[in-house]
Simulated assay, not measured.
Amino acid sequence: MAETVPPPISPPAIAALSLRGVRVAFGEFVAVDDVDLEIHPHEFLCLLGPSGCGKSTLLALMAGFAAPSAGTIEMGGEPITGPRPELGVVFQSSDALFDWLTVADNIAFGPRMRGMSKVDRAPVVAEHLRLVGLSGAADKRPPQLSGGMRQRVQIARVLANSPDIVLMDEPFGALDAQTRTVMQRELDRIWRERKNTVVFVTHDIDEALILSDRIAVMSAGPKAGIKSVYDVTLPRPRDEDSSSYVDLRHQIREDIAVEVEKSLGEQP
Rank of each mutant, 00 (worst) to 15 (best):
K118D: 15
R121D: 01
P123C: 04
V124W: 01
V125G: 07
V125K: 06
E127A: 15
L129D: 03
R130A: 14
R130Y: 00
L131H: 13
V132S: 05
V132I: 14
V132F: 03
G133Y: 13
L134G: 09
S135A: 14
A137Y: 13
A138S: 14
A138Y: 01
D139G: 08
D139H: 06
D139E: 14
P142Q: 02
P142V: 06
Q144I: 01
Q144K: 05
L145V: 08
S146V: 12
S146A: 04
G147D: 08
G147L: 04
G147W: 09
G148E: 09
M149F: 12
R150V: 05
Q151I: 06
R152Q: 03
R152K: 12
R152V: 02
V153T: 05
Q154Y: 00
I155K: 03
I155L: 15
I155F: 11
I155E: 01
V158I: 11
V158H: 09
A160H: 09
A160F: 12
A160G: 11
N161Q: 12
P163V: 05
P163M: 05
I165T: 13
V166M: 10
V166I: 11
V166T: 03
L167S: 07
L167W: 02
M168N: 13
E170M: 06
E170R: 10
E170W: 07
P171C: 08
F172S: 04
F172Q: 06
G173H: 10
A174T: 01
A174Q: 14
L175D: 05
L175N: 09
L175K: 10
A177M: 13
A177W: 04
